[in-house]
Design a protein around this nucleic acid. Sequence first.
DNA 1: ATCCATTTTTGAAATCATTACAAAATTAGG
DNA 2: CCTAATTTTGTAATGATTTCAAAAATGGAT
Lengths: 145, 145
Amino acid sequence: MDKIQKYNTDVLTALLTKAGIRPSVQRMAILRLLAERLGHPTADEIYGALVDLYPTLSRTTVYNTLHLFSEKQIMRELETDGVKRYDLASLPPHAHFVCRCCGAVADIPLPAGLQAPGNVDFTVDSIELYYKGLCNKCKSSNSNL
Amino acid sequence: MDKIQKYNTDVLTALLTKAGIRPSVQRMAILRLLAERLGHPTADEIYGALVDLYPTLSRTTVYNTLHLFSEKQIMRELETDGVKRYDLASLPPHAHFVCRCCGAVADIPLPAGLQAPGNVDFTVDSIELYYKGLCNKCKSSNSNL
DNA sequence: ATCCATTTTTGAAATCATTACAAAATTAGG
DNA sequence: CCTAATTTTGTAATGATTTCAAAAATGGAT
């Protein structure tokens, strides 16, 4: 959750409308959060970031919306450390580095030529590539490990 | 959880001993289950498969053992669908296909040349590659999706 | 504008996986 | 066979997510 980029409301509204999703206040707020504050937030982090602005916001709405967005390919679900994290699907495909110690998640370019295997037993609709290990911060601060 | 291959007790004992793990009855049972009935069981599936044979077995022991084994690189943790699954680390590295509908997990050969990215900001100790989609069984039975 | 049907949001309770913890059981070595 | 260290166990706690039904908001027709 670092870089910030302003998005036009119309662009975000269109993104939802095109997917057949009504752009309610809550849905727009969640979409805007993901679009502007890039990062890989959990449902609870999203709730925490928005509840001050929308005091009646419910965690259930956040979960509902995240499910809806994932289903409609607006967001992608990540499984990095036992908790689900969310990433904008309109971002170019990329891999993720996950720090085993602090849980930090970083975007990594996908290796060239990575594609779904040609297998007749199933149809692949998404590829998730995780590199797990230690980030430099944890490596230097924790002399152990 | 399908293929079955008999393992010599000595081989499994040595695997634990070499890692500095005492081969208790419970640990051996869990290791043997993973080694013989290849598959990608969850902690609960392991518990369920063993509790008949070891009626005093505790879920906590299963979790403890799985953590110990993962730490000592005897097993690898998979995150396929919100629940942790386990895979023998002594198997050759491979990717996994995950069915979004029934949760089936299948081993897939790793694409050639996949390796940790050369980034100075972190040290990678494992690579996890998931292909997610629908297996043929779900594709044909569920006409929807 | 007002009504009605539909959709969306909400909050509380339930569920599921996992962890924490302290007591009981087991084991290894002297 | 005693004692200390390790391992296992069961229960309770936690945390993330889901379920569910009621309340609120919305859109379209009148």
